[in-house]
């Protein structure tokens, strides 16, 4: 990859705002997953895409400075969370991967349905982010 010195002021400035809005939209998709289209998979892809936008506007090194995370570990942590929600159902004498939900009165949100499926989704989300970013970073690092 040849380093071309260009002046990316417009791209970088737009990225500064747009990447945050994409990140917010990915969180929205993640939380919408239960009753609306969305969920862990597309939310994770969207988060990864906001990081890819950063990669396009800046370079690999800058993004690694912004997020000093090894994305392989992110995927591993996600898998661990997903599996432990499955194993956690043994503690209550239920079958593997059976999920529960209940309604709670939270201080700000009012009556909210909290499901353990969300925990499983967090695992999926982290795996997707980790795998996508690992693929893109490994390809990008090759000269």
């Amino acid at each position: 990859m040849k380093k071309v010195q260009t002046n990316d002021v417009i791209l970088q400035t737009v990225t500064k705002i747009a990447s945050f809005i994409i990140l917010l939209f990915s969180f929205h998709l993640f939380f919408a997953g239960h009753n609306n289209p969305g969920g862990g998979f597309i939310g994770g892809l969207m988060t990864a895409s906001s990081l890819v936008l950063l990669l396009l506007a800046y370079d690999l090194k800058t993004v690694q400075n912004i997020l000093p995370v090894n994305f392989i570990y992110v995927a591993a942590v996600g898998l661990f969370i997903s599996i432990s929600t499955g194993i956690g159902s043994f503690l209550f004498g239920a079958q593997f991967l059976s999920h529960a939900f209940d309604y709670f009165n939270l201080p700000l949100l009012g009556k909210t349905e909290l499901a353990t499926a969300v925990l499983f989704d967090i695992g999926v989300y982290l795996v997707v982010v980790g795998v996508t970013m690992t693929i893109i970073q490994t390809i990008g690092e090759r000269e």
């Binding site: 500064k16 990447s19 945050f20 990140l23 917010l24 969180f27 400075n65 912004i66 000093p68 700000l108």
Partner: peptide
């Protein structure tokens, strides 16, 4: 608004080195 502010705060924290 408050929920959105907290989630925005989280994403700002994630990208704080930016």
């Amino acid at each position: 608004f408050v929920v959105g502010y907290v989630i925005g705060l989280f994403s700002l924290f994630l990208m704080r080195r930016f």
